[in-house]
């Protein structure tokens, strides 16, 4: 495995290797020198076609902690905004000697294309593509779940994780369903039927339209961002109705088991899918998710770039 394109490409052993590696790398944060020499001389490009400050910064910090040279290539104000194609941008980066390209793109499958079209030879890491996947987000969520609910070790066997919201448009949900189920978790998706993809019945998870039925059986609940604009396309009648039916407020949080945690990939719509009270409660682990994101991305960068090239050989 030379690229990280989909959470579905990870088997349980490889996923655990990434999480274990992240746990080791997390200790770097506590040291006086928060830097490792591992990727010295390697060049990592952040190629972001969509604005995503938090993901870009997270990758940038991860790469820098491993001593890689980081180039940020945002679409806005660059050659891309002048109409340069993905291919030409890729050829440029290749000519400059990029060892890895971390790509965020609005078109589903763009990272696959970048990895397989023969434009570049380096490693490609998917930092979110269209409504397809966001594998490092799923890894940091799995890491967070494992740390809180499984003592930071092993897989997530039997862990009950509920994901609520706009699954249809969510790359976070797709990657999480794949990864968490690979790690043995029992995943339940909760959304109005309009916000569930066709064929969701074939996914390795359960589906419910009723959040209140699922809450008491959830060890963790992940609230997805729901954009109010969706109601213009008739996915739901109004923000108010959505919030009433699917939002997580204090009363609903009380229905969760005592040690259950609340996750959100951010950015949050307070008052829409999550109430301010819940977002600021001690059940909510959003701030920790951000920190874990750096560790997980360090692990991915190390495992993909730190050796001679093949991640799964290293897992053996």
């Amino acid at each position: 495995m030379r690229h990280l394109l989909s959470a579905g490409d990870l088997d349980a052993a490889t996923a655990c290797l990434i999480l274990d590696t992240a746990a080791e790398l997390a200790t770097v944060t506590d040291r006086s020198v928060k830097k490792l020499p591992t990727l010295r001389g390697r060049t990592v490009v952040n190629l972001f076609y969509e604005d995503s400050t938090r993901t870009r910064i997270s990758f940038e910090m991860a790469a820098k902690r491993l001593s890689a040279d980081v180039i940020n290539f945002a679409a806005k104000g660059s050659s891309v905004s002048k109409g340069e194609s993905l291919k030409d941008t890729a050829l440029t980066l290749e000519a400059m000697g990029a060892d890895a390209v971390i790509i965020r793109h609005g078109s589903s499958g763009a990272p696959h294309r970048l990895a397989n079209a023969g434009w570049i030879g380096g490693t490609v890491i998917n930092a979110g593509d269209g409504t397809h996947e966001h594998p490092t987000q799923a890894l940091l969520d799995a890491y967070t779940l494992r740390r809180h609910l499984r003592g930071g070790r092993g897989d997530l066997d039997g862990l009950r994780v509920t994901i609520v919201g706009d699954v249809l448009h969510s790359r976070v949900a797709r990657s999480n369903v794949l990864l968490l189920s690979t790690l043995g978790a029992d995943v339940t998706l909760v959304a109005p039927p309009t916000l569930l993809p066709t064929g969701v019945g074939t996914w390795p998870c359960r589906v419910s339209y009723d959040i209140d039925e699922v809450l008491p059986h959830s060890d963790a609940i992940m609230m997805l961002r729901v954009q109010a604009e969706r109601m213009q396309a008739a996915f739901f009648p109004s923000a108010r109705e959505y919030s009433r039916a699917y939002g997580l407020d204090r009363a609903r949080m009380a229905a969760l088991p005592d040690d259950a945690i609340v996750l959100h990939p951010g950015p949050m719509n307070r008052g829409m899918e999550i109430s301010a009270e819940v977002a600021d409660s001690d059940r909510a682990v959003m701030v920790e998710q951000v920190a874990n994101g750096v560790s997980v991305r360090m692990a991915v960068l190390y495992l993909l770039l730190g050796g001679s090239g093949d991640l799964t050989d290293g897992a053996a």
Partner: peptide
Amino acid sequence: LDITLYRDDLRLRPARALEST
């Protein structure tokens, strides 16, 4: 003290799993 991340031969082999520090 795991030394994997400081090795000078990392690129000669696939990335190795880290040991505990």
